[in-house]
Simulated scan of single mutants.
Amino acid sequence: MTVTCAYAPSLAWPLIHHPEAAGEARRITKDVLARWQVADEPADSVLLAVSELVTNAVEHAEPPLNLRLSHDLYTHRVHIEVSDGGPAATDGDWAAGCTPDEHGRGLEIIDFLTTAHGDRLERGHAIHWADVHTTA
């Protein structure tokens, strides 16, 4: 009996916990999506979701910061996980310097782009995840 895996390999990267992490995560994700042959429109949704999740971690959480991606070939979904060290005592420089109407739309963006998303706590860190359907 042959068993085939429905997932492309799960890939993970540590990111430096600083404002440039979102750009680094987008570069990594763009390369991976090209290897997985994800079409442009869903790839854009994945890239924006990754950017939002990483930015939120940099602005609102403690290090360490990690990105994990996997692709379910049968359901045509990319699964994104961003893990961090849990909530920070204070917001990052960007969020702390903004008025309330200048930030806070990240979750609305994630709601719009993804088929599902959520959070889970594990010992010593939080994981924020999202699934993006990859068929046009």
Rank of each mutant, 00 (worst) to 15 (best):
D93S: 10
C98V: 03
G85I: 01
H125Q: 14
S10H: 09
T135P: 00
R68S: 14
R27N: 08
D40C: 01
E41L: 12
P87Q: 07
A49Y: 07
T4C: 07
L47P: 08
T99P: 00
H103M: 05
L107K: 14
D84V: 00
H117K: 06
W13E: 13
H125S: 07
A6W: 00
D101V: 08
I127N: 09
G85Q: 03
H125V: 00
Q37Y: 13
T114G: 09
D72A: 07
D101C: 03
L113K: 04
R77G: 01
A6S: 14
D72Q: 04
K30M: 06
H133E: 14
D44P: 00
Y7H: 13
C98I: 02
D101P: 12
P19Q: 01
V132F: 05
I127A: 06
P14W: 08
P63I: 05
D40F: 12
V132L: 03
A116T: 09
D44A: 15
A96R: 11
H60G: 09
A43N: 05
A39Y: 06
V38W: 04
H71M: 09
A96E: 09
G85D: 06
E59M: 04
F112A: 14
A39W: 08
H79D: 15
T114V: 08
R68L: 12
R68M: 13
P63K: 02
S70L: 04
D119E: 14
R120P: 00
I80R: 07
R77M: 10
T135A: 11
E20H: 11
I109Q: 09
E81A: 15
H103F: 13
R105F: 13
D91V: 09
L33Y: 08
L33Q: 02
R68D: 06
V82R: 03
T134D: 04
I80Q: 10
A57F: 00
H60C: 14
D44F: 08
R26C: 12
V132C: 13
D111P: 03
I28D: 03
L15T: 03
E24M: 13
H76M: 10
D131Y: 05
S70I: 02
G106C: 02
T2Y: 11
P64M: 11
R77D: 08
R123I: 01
V82C: 10
A130R: 07
H128G: 11
H76F: 13
P63W: 02
E62W: 06
L11Y: 12
D111L: 04
S45E: 10
T115A: 14
D72K: 01
T29N: 05
S10V: 12
I28W: 09
P42C: 05
W36G: 05
T99K: 12
A21S: 06
R123A: 10
R27E: 08
H60E: 13
H133L: 12
E108C: 05
D44M: 11
P87R: 12
E108A: 15
L33W: 02
H76Q: 15
W36E: 11
I16K: 12
A39G: 10
A34P: 00
G104H: 07
V132A: 12
R26S: 08
H17C: 02
A130M: 13
A130N: 04
L15C: 06
H103L: 11
S51M: 14
S83C: 02
V132G: 02
W36N: 07
H17M: 02
H18K: 12
P64A: 13
G86D: 04
T99I: 01
T2I: 14
A136V: 10
L65D: 01
V38I: 15
S45I: 00
T134Q: 05
C5H: 09
G92S: 04
T135S: 10
A130Y: 13
P87W: 04
